[in-house]
Nucleic acid binder design. Structure first.
Lengths: 153, 153
DNA sequence: CTCCAAGTTGAAGCGCACTTCAACTCAAGG
DNA sequence: CCTTGAGTTGAAGTGCGCTTCAACTTGGAG
């Protein structure tokens, strides 16, 4: 068992395409050492970072926000499970909120569609304040492709 | 009170930018009559279609899929509440599924992050089969901005 | 040594859902 | 009429999260 992983190995283990991993590195989400020949070598702890990235994306967090979150990890020492848990707690809150809002949307859909209020602005489905929060331009409530899909490339 | 709405009026009432409404029309999601001077005039029923589009987006459905769904509405007669309810039922199922999966993700996150398995492929968070289903490339589990805002999507 | 899969780079392209722009026309009030 | 705000078009631009490409280098097996 080796100390470090090549980009192909990290890709295979994380299910994230090499091109995506390079992209993450450009954005500062992960880091890599270099060999004499300039090839990337990843510490095993990067696996966890990649896992966190993918999971966070499923929760609906942008790469930019994920970067900010990862920046809060201690850089001097290896992050402990506690460090990761702290990071995850905020994500969990987001999940809870998201679940709550989707439940509300579902209930509203039941009550709303049939009654004809769908066209009214006061319909709760149209109320931005208590509706699903904005995540900024370009964002969609759509689920990312599964890791396996991306992998092969 | 008028029979038809201008694009500005539909925009104001739906919270969707005129440019987005034109875009929806190009994609075949909504329709408009034209005045002698070539300006769009929307039947009031289009309001409901726009509402359905925005709500569907919040549920995570792509415009392409929404178009398919709207195509199932009767074109000969005005859609009844029952027609709309039938349309919404499928969306409701999607919502239920989405809620279920997010709940699972949350529970897994709790059990997973702290225990160190985050880096393991067998982690349920990494299991594509029972994870959140793919919605195609480019898609994200991120919530759209509220209707009142820029819209969008 | 040779070979070639696997790695490297910057730049360009893609898909979605729009927005912006320029250049123009329409519609309604004064 | 004239003005002005609202509407029209096609084309191009935006932002995100990547992928693809061309041209080239590395590194490990045989």
């Amino acid at each position: 068992m080796h100390e470090s992983l090549t980009i192909g190995q990290l890709s295979a283990r994380s299910g994230v395409a090499p091109s995506a991993l390079r992209y993450y590195e450009r954005l500062g989400l992960i880091r890599a050492e270099r060999t004499g020949g300039n090839q990337r070598r990843y510490a095993r702890t990067e696996l966890r970072r990649v896992a966190f990235i993918r999971i966070s994306q499923q929760v609906g967090v942008s790469l930019d926000e994920i970067r900010e979150a990862l920046d809060s990890l201690p850089s001097s020492r290896n992050p402990t499970p506690d460090d990761w848990a702290a990071l995850s707690r905020a994500w969990r809150d987001r999940l809870d909120e998201k679940i709550r809002l989707l439940g509300k949307l579902r209930d509203d859909l039941d009550g709303c569609i049939g009654c004809g209020c769908l066209s009214l602005q006061r319909c709760t489905l149209y109320n931005p304040e208590d509706s699903l929060a904005s995540e900024g331009p370009g964002a969609r409530l759509v689920l990312p492709r599964p890791a396996a899909d991306v992998t092969a490339g």
